[in-house]
Each structure stands twice: as C-alpha cells, then as structure tokens.
Amino acid sequence: MDKKIYIGILLLAVGMIFSFTSCDNDDLDSTSIFTDVETDEEGRVGLNPNSYSYELDRWLWDNYLLPYNLQYRYKMQDVGADMNYNLVPTRYEKAIDMAVLTKYLWFDVYDKIVGPNFLKLYGPRIIHLIGSAAYNPNNGTKILGLAEGGIKVSLFQCNDMDYNDIDYMNEQYFKTMHHEFSHILHQMKTYPKDFRLISTAHYMPFNWESREHEEAASLGFVSPYAGSETQEDFVEVIANYIVKTDAQWNKILEMAEKEYNTDDEGNIVYDGVNGREVILEKLEICKNWLSSAWGVELDDIRNEVQYRQANIDIEFLRSQITADYE
C-alpha cells in the first residue's frame, strides 16, 4: 500500500477519534428540572396554605383528587379552553356550591348505592367549571355540557346556578352529569341491540331541536335531544329517569300517550306510536342493562337522588369545606 495512503488512513482515524469524543460530556442530568415543588403540611402537592383558595383546594384534593383521581377545575385557564369560544370563569362562591352539590348529588349517591370503587374506576378524571354559556357559532345553540372521551366533563353557565331551583340545576348540570356519565358506561360495555331497533324510524340527527317536548314524547322520546340518535336516546332515558320527580316523569308519560301530533298548518297527523309504551320499554332495557352489565340498580340510584335533591341543606354542605378540618 502506498505510504501516502497509510498517512491518510492514520489522519482519518485520528479525526474520527476527535469527532467521537469531542462531545462526550453531555450526560443527562439525573435531577428533575423542577426544583421547588410546593406542598402543604399534609403533603398535598401544589397546595399553598397561604393561598386565598386553600380551604376549597384542600377539600377538593381530599374529596375528589385523592379518592377518585379527579381534578375539579374551577380556576379557568382560557389558554387551556377552546379559543374559538368566548368563555369566562366561574365565580369562586359558585364553584364552592357546585363542588359540594356535585359530591352530594352524584358521587356520594354512587358510593352509597353501588360502592366506593365504581366512580373510582369509571368516573371522569376532570370536571371543568365554566362560568358562561358556550355558543355554537354555527347554529347559535348553547352547549350545556361536554364529555370528552370519558375523561373530562365540562359544565357551562355555572355563574347562573341557583341551588334553590333544582329543576334548573338538574336541566343545566346534574342531568348533564348523569347523561355524560352514562355515555362513559355504554362506551365501555355496549347497550343491547334491541334498544337501537325501537325508534329507528323516528330519529332526527339534524334539526332535532325543532321538535317540541310533547311531539318528542309522543314518538317515544323522553326529550327532543333523545330523538337525535340512539346513543343520546339511551343516556337521556337514564338521566331523565334519575333526576325527574315522579310528577315530572309521569308528565312525560302523559304527553307520550298521545298518538298524534299537529303539523305546521294545524292538521292532526297520527304518528302511530304509543310513546308511553315505547319509553317504558326503553326504560326497562336501561334498567336491565345497568343491573346486568354494571350491577347498578337504576331505581335505587333514582330513589337516592330524589331523596337528596328534596333535602338540600346548602349551608351544611358548604360548611364541609371548613368543618371537615376542625
């Protein structure tokens, strides 16, 4: 081999050694990039006892995060919300009421009736309170609640909540919670095919909002939204049955008994559906499915919710925020 080539190979080797070793000091740092992690005396991470909201934050930690791994987000971050909507946060005092009522009317009910592990396993991981309505830019309708992938439940218009008006509270929040939670359940264990066949001819995916309650009931739907598609129908039966009082539920069945509707010109049009029978058939399927698939007795849940919503002592519920630690 030519001597010059030897020299060349030698130089190449030296060069490669330099190239491999010159940057070898960049070891990964074994320590966390986060230096000061704040905790309170009981070790609740991120909680500052000097914070103005410490009492609520501590209670949320102990009553939602610790038992259910659920973040109860009431401090809104607009940068974390959909920037296409103009949304505002919930008032602090309203967030307190919503937090204690959610526990009282939802989490504690399932804990008592089904067992403490049920919502730990299947409940959402985030409840996000939003103070204002969210207007759909396409059709101007307001969004009451959103359940995103079974993980996050967003509740809107919390600044308008009035705990004295349980019907409004149910319509706006608690029915929404049961509605969204039922979605989570049927997404994990699908509901019976029989249910899908009952009202196939009458679903109206678009323009469902144009149906009045009476018309929807006569077709076998517990609400106009239930008439939009099968899945919504299924969860609306469960949610409405849980939160409606006997009188309200019977009113739906009464409306459903009518087998005709009136068209835009005032003419009577027979729909040929016995809505009462249809709704009761759907309810039976829901009850059986919840019992067999989940071990949940819907009537027990409903009875407990009905008892609780008739006996709301808001001052007592609020006092838990501080009383639990005295």
Partner: peptide
C-alpha cells in the same frame, strides 16, 4: 381565573 364582575364582564359572550 375566577369570575370578577368587572374584568369578566368584558369577556362574557
């Protein structure tokens, strides 16, 4: 990050 009757009145939809 919680509602204020002044600041957020200019953000309500």
């Amino acid at each position: 990050n919680t509602f204020n009757n002044i600041i957020h009145k200019f953000s309500e939809p």
